[in-house]
Structure formats: structure tokens, C-alpha cells
């Protein structure tokens, strides 16, 4: 292996197949000892098992029939997979007076509205923050960075007071509005827009385009990775938000809320709870699988200056 061989994998357009077949396990680097590589593999393997184990256990339990859940000593893997738990999940939901499909419908509508709304609002706000030296832009940018600290759980009670005074508690807006104004999305979008060359904007301005048009026709088509990232982060946050004390009417509740009611049932409901958690887990994971490359590309511009 010569020094130049493993370099510039991305810049040089070698045929893809050759590269992949050679480097499934490790990238070719300079200065790598075999023992070191084995160490890396062992370390990641051990921690990988620790990270994967609970999820594997949860997925297995979702397919365990009742007699396998109550078996002693408990087993990790499932022997005779069945869909019993998913059917029972439907019945359990009906016991709360509302069919399961209603929770799924609520979750889906709220998540889609909040995710797309967040993308629209955050993107529109991020463009001037990145590119326009308007009076107050420095201050607003600092406020946005500062607010990254104030996660939803930290501002929960003050936010609850404000939303209660506006009469939003126990409406879908109590879940949607806080998700729309998450500052991480604006921050990531702004960092990404900063990398777009100003010359592109100038060209559009000379053609007489308004700033709105520049955003939607010049900027937005060029920030696809950031848009995908915002979609994933926003969707994951809202899809997993059970509503806590923000929603108490059963017909307005969302899927995670049903998971916590089922979990309270203990070991007898372990299978049903795992089934619910599997249904909850899949959409964000599938979304992330498709968009991982975009997320990484966006995050590489995320640095704090």
C-alpha cells in the first residue's frame, strides 16, 4: 500500500464497487497498526452490544406469545414469534374508549403538520439570520445560540403557564406550537445557509427577485441536506412526545401516551408495551436510514464560532 493509495477517497472518482469491496471493515489509512484495528473493533463491538441489547430485547418481546413472556427463567430471544401482542394492543386501546387507529391518526397528523411547519418557519427565519446584516441580527443570533441550552424539559413549566393562559392546553396546538419554534432547527439551517456563496444571491437580486423569492427559489433548493435533517429532528421530537399534562382528553391523545398507560400494566403487559414501542420506533428509524448522509453533511457545518 503506497502513501497516496488511501487518500482522497472522496475527491477522486474511482469506480465505487472496487472501493467498497476493499473497505468493508476498515478504511485504508496511513499510520494504522493491525492490533490497533483489532482493538477498535473489540471496543466498538462490546459497546455496540450494550447499545443494541435493550432494543433487540424489546423487538423480540413484541413478538413473544404470552407463555413465552411468563416463562421462567426469562429468555431474551423469541422462539415462536406471533402477532398476538399487536392484536391485543388494538383491544387494549379500545378499553380506553378510543380505537387505536385514532391515536395513530392523531400522532400522524400532529407530527406531519408540526414537522413541515417547523421546516417552513425555521428555514424562512434562518435565511436572514445567516445572510442579512439587519439591525439586531447579531443579538438575535446570540439569542438563538443561547436558547439551544433551554431544552423543552427545562422550560416546561413556564411554557405550560403561558400556554394555559392562552387556552392551548388540551388542544393539539399544545404539542404543535412548541415543536414549531425549536431553535436547533433554525441554528442548523442558518449554519448551512452560511456556506452558500453570496454571489448566487447577488445574481438573483440583480434580476430583481424579492428576498422571499430568493429564499424559496435560490436558497431552499440548495439546502436539501439541512431540510432533511430538520425534518428528522423535528419529526423524531414530536412523534415521541407523549404530551404529559398538556393533553388529557383521551380522544386527543397520541401514541406515546398509550405506551405509558400500557407499561403501567407490568409484566403481563410487557408484550403489548413492546409492540407499541416497536410501532413507535420504526418511523423515525426508517426516516433516519434514508437520510443519514444528509444529516451528517448538515452537522458538519454545525460548528459554534
Amino acid at each position: 500500500m503506497t502513501a497516496g493509495d488511501g487518500k482522497g477517497e472522496k475527491s477522486v472518482n474511482k469506480p465505487k464497487k472496487l472501493r467498497a469491496s476493499k473497505r468493508i471493515l476498515f478504511r485504508q489509512h496511513l499510520n494504522r497498526s493491525t492490533w490497533g484495528n483489532i482493538g477498535v473493533f473489540l471496543f466498538l463491538g462490546i459497546f455496540g452490544v450494550f447499545f443494541a441489547f435493550p432494543i433487540v430485547y424489546s423487538v423480540c418481546t413484541a413478538f413473544k406469545p404470552m407463555n413465552e413472556i411468563l416463562i421462567f427463567p426469562p429468555r431474551i430471544f423469541v422462539r415462536n414469534p406471533s402477532l398476538e401482542n399487536f392484536i391485543e394492543l388494538g383491544q387494549v386501546a379500545t378499553d380506553f374508549w378510543v380505537p387505536l387507529s385514532r391515536y395513530i391518526f392523531n400522532s400522524a397528523v400532529i407530527s406531519v403538520v408540526a414537522t413541515l411547519g417547523h421546516l417552513l418557519l425555521a428555514g424562512m427565519a434562518a435565511y436572514p439570520l445567516a445572510k442579512h446584516p439587519f439591525p439586531g441580527s447579531k443579538f438575535l443570533n446570540q439569542v438563538m445560540v443561547m436558547s439551544l441550552l433551554f431544552t423543552s424539559s427545562v422550560t416546561y413549566i413556564p411554557q405550560y403557564i403561558v400556554m394555559a393562559k392562552m387556552g392551548l392546553i388540551d388542544t393539539p396546538w399544545a404539542l404543535i406550537l412548541p415543536a414549531l419554534q425549536s431553535s436547533l432547527g433554525v441554528y442548523l439551517m442558518r449554519s448551512f445557509i452560511l456556506t452558500i456563496p453570496n454571489a448566487m444571491l447577488e445574481a438573483a437580486r440583480i434580476d430583481g427577485a424579492s428576498e422571499f423569492r430568493i429564499y424559496f427559489q435560490v436558497i431552499f433548493p440548495n439546502v436539501k441536506p439541512a431540510a432533511m435533517t430538520l425534518i428528522i429532528f423535528a419529526f423524531q421530537g414530536i412523534w415521541n412526545n407523549g404530551g404529559g399534562s398538556l393533553i388529557y382528553s383521551e380522544e386527543l391523545k397520541v401514541l406515546p401516551a398509550i405506551l405509558s398507560s400500557v407499561t403501567a400494566g407490568g409484566i403481563a403487559r410487557a408484550g403489548v408495551a413492546s409492540a407499541a414501542s416497536l410501532i413507535l420506533m420504526l418511523p423515525p428509524i426508517i426516516l433516519f436510514c434514508f437520510a443519514q448522509r444528509n444529516v451528517i453533511e448538515t452537522m458538519s457545518t454545525s460548528g459554534l464560532k
Binding site: R19, A20, R23, I24, L25, F26, R27, H29, R32, N37, V40, L44, F47, G48, F51, A52, P54, I55, Y57, S58, T61, Q236, W239, N240, G242, P256, L259, S260, T263, A273, S274, S277, L280, M281, P284, I285, F288, C289, Q292, R293, I296
Partner: peptide, 26 residues
């Protein structure tokens, strides 16, 4: 340090608990 195929897989694996949201109930 990993190759092109292992890297996204391991990233997903370590990020999965956060991605799964409520899966910590397990």
C-alpha cells in the same frame, strides 16, 4: 476508522436509543 459500509450502520446503532424516543421503557 471503519469502512464505508460499517460506518453508517454503527452510527445508526449508537444513535438508535435517541431515535427510538420511548424505547427506553424496555
Amino acid at each position: 476508522e471503519l469502512g464505508d459500509r460499517m460506518r453508517p450502520f454503527m452510527t445508526l446503532l449508537f444513535y438508535m436509543p435517541v431515535l427510538g424516543g420511548n424505547v427506553y421503557f424496555v
